[in-house]
Write a protein that binds this DNA or RNA. Structure first.
Length: 649
RNA sequence: GGCGGCGUAGCUCAGUCGGUAGAGCAGACGGCUCAUAUCCGUUAUGUCGGGGGUUCAAUUCCCUCCGCCGCUACCA
């Protein structure tokens, strides 16, 4: 019988960023799943790779005096090196600059266009280079005639009016909803599935899928002025990697993918856009998408700006790949954000891996060495205790496979370590060192040690997807090459090769003394406590420093004009004079204030609030108003002689 | 504002299809010596977020409030 296939993917990583712990987590998760599926008898195809197109890459490359491909090459090298260090056994590494990928993207694009679901349209408005996104023209302008991107707050490029191709996403809402309904487990965990459904239920708008301003990318077939937009390009990797171009036997046997793995921030692209693209191209949809959370650093989101991004290389200076893999799989449950702290990391690894697991192996082999000179004969004086060890292993295996099948590695590992602890308890109960004192107890001693060896080897298999290096070492120690599941047997006479340290203890003091836990502050002493959120100290009831207050620029402004926002009951659009400029803001006060109540009045606004788009209108600032329990606003109106632009402090 | 989730021991979390709760870590005490100062045992603390309701009985069901998180919006 042929082995069933299992095609699994990570996202392709954007080469604008060096590999960090988030990339590592997704990829380790995929690798663990691969190894687990192999254990269950699947023929696995594991795909990862890099996303290399887009204006951002073009720009950061030229900043460094490189071509975009050169930049990508150097980043690819770093990703591949890290994957090797972390023992990632991927089968294929795709790059969006690969020839087969480029041609494959063009093929699916052309196919959908022929079908009529990609059409040529026109876009007029602004463009945010950073987000590579169009900014609606309704956005009010900044001082120099540009717009502020509502997503990132950066100024846009100059106004553009360009042709581009649109994907008829609006036509797929119903089909997607039907698919979700028939496949409620398409997105795991369920809460993410619900988010997707509600997003689609609110209605989908057609999606622009090309850019004429971007040159570094896949050209539209027959229209080389246009470049296929990054997401259409990137998502297609899952099919181009397996020869969608020729729709060969390989493609037929692997597609649809069994599992796409990703972090929660790119859920929408994978669970809405990607299935829609595939439906349009007449291809089957992937079977499942597994969404994981983010790793927070000391409760805070990691970001380049806060300088707390965790570099896996620093951990690798002190810890083995297996230790890192174990921690990530043990500490986070799929779906929830995990919290990374160095204290927690050291603690978990030392406790579980060094004290419990490695020490169990070490004391068992130590006794075999000491009492039997490394080789003992099974003289079979077993008791009910040994039967229990075996029976409980059988139960454990069943439970763990159940957890792992649902990708709940944290749960499975928890049960495994309960069992490991019970083996340590067993040793204390039977006291082998006392048995060793009487020659007549030797058969009994042999039975105990052999049972331990069998239990260790059996558990070792369950751990092997997470700890591949260690698992191989343990098999080597007991001369037991078989990596399969089930209660392991050993030959009647077995020899071991002791003396191997599986997990050296890492001393927290040494680790912190080297400053590696805090790469952002090279050489600085670690803070005694967890850093507090900026500006707010614990126990001082949310008091702020005067510097914090000064961050908020409040000024007196005069209302020049006011009107109701169309199709919005609660919104008024105001044109105001802030003393230094004229700007638009939108306020949710229409139920209580009429436009004519406000025109000419002096009010207080927050001037430096990040602009936001409300009902398509960019609101640059905020009116200060009191608000009662029913959220009724009360706007302070200043005396008529208050100077416009006066600062409140 | 809407939808969803969460709030349980100092920390991380499990659990109860309703009968006043648990595991690991950290702490305290004790035991063993095969083992990487490891292992094993005993052990403290919880108004199970607040309030109300249903019930003989609620931490578990219902309502409401507070706080946090996610998605989203006519919050800004």
């Amino acid at each position: 019988m042929a082995m069933p296939k299992f095609y699994l993917t990570t996202p392709i990583y954007y080469v604008n960023d060096v590999p960090h712990i988030g990339h590592a987590y997704t990829t380790i998760l995929a690798d663990v799943i691969k190894r687990y599926k192999q254990l269950r008898g699947f023929q696995v195809m594991f795909l990862t790779g890099t996303d290399e197109h887009g204006q951002k890459i073009e720009r950061s490359a030229s900043k460094q005096g490189l071509g975009p491909k050169q930049l990508a090459d150097s980043m690819v090298k770093r990703f591949k090196e890290l994957w090797q260090t972390l023992n990632i056994d991927y089968d294929q590494f795709i790059r969006t600059t690969d020839e087969e990928h480029v041609r494959g993207v063009q093929k699916i694009f052309a196919k959908v266009r022929e079908k009529g679901d990609i059409y040529l349209g026109e876009y007029a408005g602004h463009y945010c280079i950073s987000c590579e996104n169009f900014i609606p023209d309704s956005a009010e302008e900044t001082t120099d005639g540009k717009r502020t991107c509502p997503d990132c707050g950066r100024a846009t490029a100059n106004r553009v009016k360009e042709k581009c191709y649109f994907f008829r996403l609006s036509a797929y809402g119903g089909k997607l909803l039907k698919f979700y309904e028939e496949n409620p487990d398409f997105v795991t965990p369920r809460s993410r599935m619900n988010e997707v459904v509600s997003f689609v239920k609110m209605g989908l708008r057609d999606l622009s899928v090309t850019r004429s301003t971007v040159k570094w990318g896949v050209p539209v077939p027959g229209d080389p002025q246009q470049t296929i937009y990054v997401w259409f390009d990137a998502l297609a990797n899952y099919i181009t990697a397996i020869d969608y171009l020729n729709e060969s036997e390989r493609f037929a046997s692997l597609w649809p993918a069994d599992l796409h793995i990703m972090a929660k921030d790119i859920l929408k692209y994978h669970a809405v856009y990607w299935p829609a693209f595939l439906l349009a191209a007449g291809l089957p949809l992937p079977k499942k998408e597994l969404i994981h959370g983010w790793w927070l650093k000391d409760e805070k989101k990691m970001s380049k700006s806060s300088g707390n991004v965790l570099d896996p290389h620093i951990l690798l200076k002190h810890f083995s790949a297996d230790a890192i893999r174990y921690f990530l799989m043990r500490e986070a449950s799929i779906g929830a954000d995990g919290n990374f702290s160095h204290e927690g990391f050291i603690n978990r690894v030392n406790t579980d891996l060094t004290n419990d697991w490695a020490n169990l192996v070490s004391r068992t082999t130590g006794m075999i060495e000491k009492y039997f000179a490394n080789s003992f004969r099974d003289t079979a004086r077993y008791t009910v205790k040994e039967d229990e060890i075996r029976d409980r292993y059988v139960e454990l295996e069943k439970a763990v496979l159940d957890n792992f099948d649902q990708y709940q590695f944290n749960r499975g590992l928890e049960s495994i370590f309960e069992y490991v602890n019970s083996l340590n308890r067993y040793i204390v109960e039977v006291q082998p060192w006392n048995l060793a004192k009487e020659k007549e107890n030797e058969p009994r001693l042999a039975a105990v040690l052999k049972t331990l060896a069998r239990a260790i080897l059996s558990v070792n298999t369950l751990l092997s997807p997470i700890l591949p290096d260690t698992a191989a070492k343990v098999r080597g120690i007991f001369n037991a090459p078989d990596p399969g599941l089930g209660w392991k047997d050993l030959p009647e006479t077995s020899a071991i090769q002791p003396g191997m340290q599986l997990f050296p203890r890492v001393d927290g003091k040494v680790f912190f003394a080297e400053g590696d836990a805090f790469p952002a502050k090279e050489g600085a002493a670690p803070p005694a406590t967890t850093p507090l959120p900026q500006g707010i100290g614990a126990g001082d009831e949310g008091l702020i420093e005067i510097q914090d207050f000064k961050k908020v620029q409040m000024v007196v402004a005069r209302v020049l004009a006011a009107e109701k926002v169309e199709k919005a009951d609660k919104l008024l659009q105001l044109k105001i004079d802030t003393g230094s400029d004229t700007r638009t803001l939108v306020a949710g006060i229409a139920l209580f204030y009429k436009p004519e109540d406000l025109v000419g009045r002096k009010i207080i606004i927050v001037k430096n609030l990040k602009p936001a788009k409300l009902r398509g209108i960019l609101s640059q600032g905020m009116i200060l108003a009191a608000s009662d329990a029913g959220n009724r606003p009360y706007i302070p109106i200043l005396p008529d002689d208050t100077p416009v632009g006066a600062i409140l402090k």
